[in-house]
């Protein structure tokens, strides 16, 4: 028996293709996560504003992103926009937009939760010291809120990285799709190909996501000891 399945990964340029696929995954995820963090924090603060109109709009946006599956959003932006308005967006740009919209909504809600979970006396004490609203946010609310939202935010980031495998449905070839291409080509000759390719992809995802978890754990520990 010479058909060692692991050889499939080193055949031709397969390993390079997997790595390029991983780079595509990372590119989409990193840009989307960066946008989500920046605008998500802003959106979260906006959500705490006590204005019925602002709250309704924010709520609508959040629920729309939550209720409608990511896949549908991808199709809407990639195919729908072109069909209705003849706007052509590249598949990767669409992926970044959709994942950012999702990230901003979820991140916003996490931020809102963290801010509102702070006891009201924190704000009141700040005011008693004569701080302005901006100073209260800068020195009291944000530093405490950030600590509370780290675990949830990290969870969101890793979820976003993994969910990028959906973008294949609008034609972006990322790491999982490359894996399937390799498996299908080799399956008749090396039936164990799927095991090895998926094992390889598992390792790649692990290498990406594990450091993020480690880093968040470190961050939490560090802040606990302060």
């Amino acid at each position: 028996m010479q058909d060692l399945g692991i050889n499939v990964i080193f055949e031709g340029s397969n390993l390079l293709r997997l790595l390029i696929g991983l780079w595509v995954t990372m590119r989409i995820a990193i840009v989307a996560i960066a946008i989500s963090v920046v605008f998500g924090i802003a959106f979260g603060i906006v959500m705490t504003v006590k204005n019925t109109f602002v709250q309704i709009v924010a709520r609508l946006y959040l629920e729309a992103v939550r209720i409608i599956p990511i896949l549908v959003w991808l199709f809407l932006f990639y195919f729908g926009l072109t069909k209705v308005l003849h706007i052509h967006l590249g598949a990767e740009v669409v992926s970044v937009i959709v994942f950012s919209l999702w990230g901003i909504a979820e991140m916003g809600d996490i931020v809102r939760g963290a801010i509102t979970s702070l006891p009201a006396h924190q704000r009141a004490s700040g005011r008693a010291l004569g701080l302005t609203d901006l100073q209260i946010y800068r020195y009291i609310i944000i530093p405490q809120a950030v600590r509370r939202l780290i675990p949830a935010a990290i969870n969101l980031a890793t979820r976003m990285i993994k969910t990028t495998s959906l973008v294949v449905l609008i034609g972006v070839v990322e790491v999982l799709k490359v894996g399937q291409q390799i498996i299908e080509v080799s399956i008749l000759k090396t039936p164990s190909a799927s095991f090895w390719v998926y094992a390889c992809i598992f390792a790649l995802y692990f290498i990406i996501c594990y450091p993020i978890s480690l880093w968040s754990k470190k961050l939490e520990l560090k802040w606990q000891n302060q």
Binding site: E11, S13, Q181, E184, V185
Partner: peptide
């Protein structure tokens, strides 16, 4: 890109 032998991507991409 994954339905040999009709349409697939070979080991060299």
């Amino acid at each position: 890109s994954d339905k040999p032998p009709f349409g697939f991507v070979d080991a060299n991409g």
